[in-house]
Design a protein around this nucleic acid. Structure first.
Lengths: 227, 227
DNA sequence: GCATATCGGAGCAAAACGCTCCGTTTGAAC
DNA sequence: GTTCAAACGGAGCGTTTTGCTCCGATATGC
């Protein structure tokens, strides 16, 4: 139909496979953590291992691509939130989008892959948007004043990974998937309501520093900057 | 000192080792998921592999013991909460205790081990206590009325596992541990505040069914009852 | 110093892993 | 209908990891 598919008919399947691979990789990563095997990913995508390795030279390369995509989605969600007229609704949009993006939190592979400059860039951009989102919500008096951007990001990360969904997925219990998704939505709503102003009390402890985020992605081996 | 240690002097070390093993198993399970190896557990506990296998006949048996202990602690936390004079504070006590019990959520091994009748029993008892706790908080008007016991348990499960702490642990970044713990406390406080009455809105979707919990522990292989 | 109980960890068979390689299938061109 | 190149799936290789056994070293009570 499009010029793209016309120019290379057979490539349409390749593109579908690529998408399936990325989706499968996310799911496998959520189900099995960093130990997710390429065989699992390929099988889940309904694709041969050979096809996987034609597209990505190694497992790490696949995971890197996954990270870049995730960062792009986070950025997009934050900027969509900023575009929203209402400060609170905008913030909730960002949070919900980031959480719903899937149980595919990337935490399991943090520190196991090399951070490319591209990732660092995209991450910086997303952070700026989130900070703006938080500032605006603070100014409007919608967000409780003692919550920082880091608090928000950590809360989102906490809610992004669903032990329940991961396990059902692992066991192939598709029958309960819908109920689990609904339950997850409710839990998310509860937790996000805790962000609203006015707050019933002041949050304990000192505001968390940003290093909790930034230092996660530098592998334990190299403490120097990305190259 | 106690009669226990006097009666069997050398067994004191064994008992210490046992506790270290259980603690190490929890940590390893949090860090590596279901793939945590016995070697890792033993090393983390500062104990030889031989000693591990003298106490537990297999890896599964160790994990089963871990589950039983966790269930006991959940029960205890819930009953402590009930003993608390204030309905809201009691509920918060239960939630905080369950969450702080550690990033050692057992979700990773759910479905991989055989559920003993003992576990089923203890689980039943804990559930009853939680239900009473929720009912009491509802009656007192402290807990938002649209939250069910299952909602609460799922929220706790969600908060119990900390991706951040797990990763820092995996990388051995003990320097950030304190800051991460503090951040975690804040996030927990935010989420629990979302449980308070009055609620800013009604929770979306239908209340989750209990099967989301009960069916988790039956292994995918045997759909019949525990034996 | 001897008997006994507990310890740590080298080593083994089996499983799981990342990845390569190659025979098969697909669909447009003629 | 034949041809050809591009994309496919998956068996299999060598390596690493794993659960667990076995045994020599070490500590304690008498």
């Amino acid at each position: 139909m499009t010029e793209h598919t016309r120019r290379a008919p057979r490539q349409a399947e390749a593109e579908r496979n690529d998408r399936a691979l990325l989706q499968a990789a996310r799911e496998a990563l959520a189900a099995d953590g960093a130990h997710a095997s390429v065989a699992t990913i390929a099988e889940r995508a309904g694709v041969g291992i050979g096809s996987l390795y034609r597209r990505y030279r190694s497992k790490d390369e696949l995971f890197q691509r996954l990270c870049v995509i995730a960062l792009e989605e986070y950025s997009a969600a934050a900027e969509e939130g900023l575009a929203h007229g209402d400060p609170w609704e905008g913030l909730v949009h960002y949070a919900m989008a980031s959480i719903a993006r899937g149980p595919g939190s990337l935490a399991p592979i943090a520190g196991t892959i090399t951070v490319t400059p591209e990732m660092a860039d995209k991450n910086k951009r997303a952070d700026a948007a989130v900070k703006a989102l938080v500032d605006r919500a603070h100014a409007a008096g919608a967000l409780r004043p003692d919550v920082t951007a880091v608090d928000l990001e950590l809360l989102i990360e906490q809610l992004a990974k669903s032990p329940l969904l991961d396990q059902l997925n692992r066991q192939g219990r598709t029958d309960l998937a819908e109920a689990a998704l609904n339950a997850r939505t409710r839990v998310t709503a509860i937790a996000l309501d805790g962000l609203r102003a006015p707050a019933p009390h002041v949050l304990p402890g000192d505001p968390p520093g940003y290093e909790l985020f930034s230092e996660r992605w530098t592998s334990p081996a190299d403490s120097d900057l990305v190259r």
